[in-house]
Design a binder for these strands. Structure first.
Lengths: 155, 155
DNA sequence: CGCGGAATGTTATGTTATAGCGTCTTTTGA
DNA sequence: TCAAAAGACGCTATAACATAACATTCCGCG
C-alpha cells in the first residue's frame, strides 16, 4: 500500500468473478446490474449513486434513480459492493468470493480513496465488545474510519 | 422508536457539564445550541436533524434547517454529540470531558438504540490496521456496528 | 403457449444537508 | 465609550440522497 487509486483489480476479471458469484447462487446478473457494477469497478474509488446514474446515460438517456438503487441493493446483498455510509458512496468489494469481510474501511479525508483493509484483530475486538455489551452482531462488521492516506500525506 | 430507551444520564447534569466544557474552551453555549443539545440528551436515543427541528417548534415556530445543522456542527466539534452516519442521526456523547473516544457504537437494528461502548482494544486494533495501511488516523475513531441489543433479543 | 415471479420503467415524493446573504449580537481593543 | 471585527442567527432557496407505489416487460418453466 498504497498505489493511488485504480491500479489494482482488472475490471474484466472482476466482472467474470461477479458473474460466477451470482451464478453459484442462482441470482441473475442482469444488464443493469452489470452496468452498475462495471461502473463501480472502473471508478476505482467510492462513487455516489447519482454519479453512476449520470454515467449510465452516456448515450443520452439516463435511467431513473430507482434503477440504480435497485441494482445497488442487489450488488450489496451479494457482497459485490459495499456502501460507505459516512460518504453516501458505493465501492466494489475486493474479495466478493468469501462471505467474511473482517476488517476496516480506511477512508482518506483528502482524496476520498477507501481501502478495505483485512484485519481479523479488529473483527475480533469488535465481536468481543459486542458480546460484553449484550449485543449480537448482525451481518458484516466493516467499520469506516477516517484518516489520511500515505499518498496524500507524502504528496 | 424504542419502548425501552435508556433513561440514564440526567439532562440537567449533562447541560451543566456541556456548559463547563464550552466555557473551558472559550466557546459560546448559546440558546440555540443549548436547545438542540437538551433535545438530544432528553431523547435518550439517536434522533434526526429534522426531528430536532420539529421539536424545537413546540411553540409553533420552527427554525429553518440551517439553524439546527449549525448547532449540530458546533456540538460535534466540541465532542458533545456524535453523528451516526449509518443512521443519519445524532446522539449525545456519554463522556464529553475527555477528548479520546476509543470504542464502538453498537446500534440496535430493531429499536435503534445506540450504545457508545468504550473499548481500548478496538481502538488499538484499528490504529494498528491504519498504520499498516499507511493511514494516519484523523479525529475520532468510533466505528458504528449493527447488531441486536439484549433487550430486543430477550423480549 | 401462457402462467407467475422477477426485473425494470416511470412518476412522484420524501428525506437529509448546504449555499449564500443579510442582520443582529458579542467581543475586542484603541 | 465607541467603532471595527468576528461570531451567531434568520431566511430563502436548492442541492444531494433515497424510496414509495404502480405499470409494464422480461424470462424461465410446465
Amino acid at each position: 500500500m498504497s498505489d493511488h487509486a485504480h491500479m489494482h483489480s482488472d475490471p474484466d476479471a472482476a466482472l467474470e468473478r461477479a458473474e460466477r458469484v451470482c451464478r453459484s447462487r442462482g441470482a441473475r446478473f442482469t444488464d443493469q446490474r452489470r452496468r452498475v457494477y462495471e461502473l463501480i469497478v472502473r471508478a476505482g474509488e467510492p462513487v455516489t449513486a447519482y454519479e453512476l446514474l449520470h454515467r449510465m446515460g452516456a448515450d443520452g438517456t439516463h435511467p431513473a434513480p430507482p434503477t440504480v438503487y435497485r441494482a445497488l441493493d442487489f450488488l450489496q446483498a451479494h457482497g459485490l459492493v459495499h456502501r460507505l455510509a459516512s460518504q453516501s458512496r458505493f465501492v466494489a468489494c475486493d474479495h466478493p468470493e468469501n462471505g467474511a469481510h473482517g476488517g476496516v474501511f480506511l477512508v482518506c479525508d483528502r482524496c476520498g480513496q477507501a481501502v478495505e483493509w483485512q484485519d481479523e484483530r479488529v473483527a475480533r475486538a469488535v465481536a468481543r465488545s459486542a458480546r460484553e455489551a449484550g449485543f449480537r452482531l448482525g451481518g458484516e462488521v466493516l467499520p469506516e474510519i477516517e484518516g489520511t492516506c500515505g499518498d496524500c500525506r507524502d504528496g
